[in-house]
């Protein structure tokens, strides 16, 4: 109980955000929007990690380190993903994931 906020409130919010991100990643017609959904999912994971860190074991650093690595990897993945999308757009003039289903351009 942190200032009157029970743990499961944070977990439910993180779960809702994760499901919204999942919907965005699977149901959108533009590759950039798919990446936005992925970023939302990563944020939900971070909220989850930090909530458990604070409520169960604030003396440990495992939760914090895990969160830091999720930040780092999310940043790297967003950069590389967007670069790929820009390159694909230059080659095929389209970034609709439904149309990009061939390995050949």
């Amino acid at each position: 109980m942190l200032n009157g906020i029970p743990l499961h409130w944070f977990l439910l919010v993180a779960a809702a955000l994760f499901c919204l991100g999942l919907f965005g990643a699977l149901a959108r017609k533009n590759a950039i929007a798919v990446l936005m959904g992925v970023e939302l999912m990563l944020n939900a994971v971070n909220i989850n990690l930090l909530a458990f860190w604070r409520y169960v074991n604030p003396a440990g650093t495992g939760g914090l380190a895990f969160t830091a690595f999720v930040f780092i990897v999310a940043a790297a993945e967003a950069a590389v993903g967007l670069a790929l999308i820009i390159s694909v757009y230059r080659n095929t003039q389209s970034i609709d994931p439904e149309k990009l289903d061939q390995m050949k351009l």
Partner: peptide, 19 residues
Amino acid sequence: LFIFAVMLTRGTALITPLN
């Protein structure tokens, strides 16, 4: 990065949101 990618892929026109 997202905003730059939106500009560079000419995504500023309105799109159909859901597939």
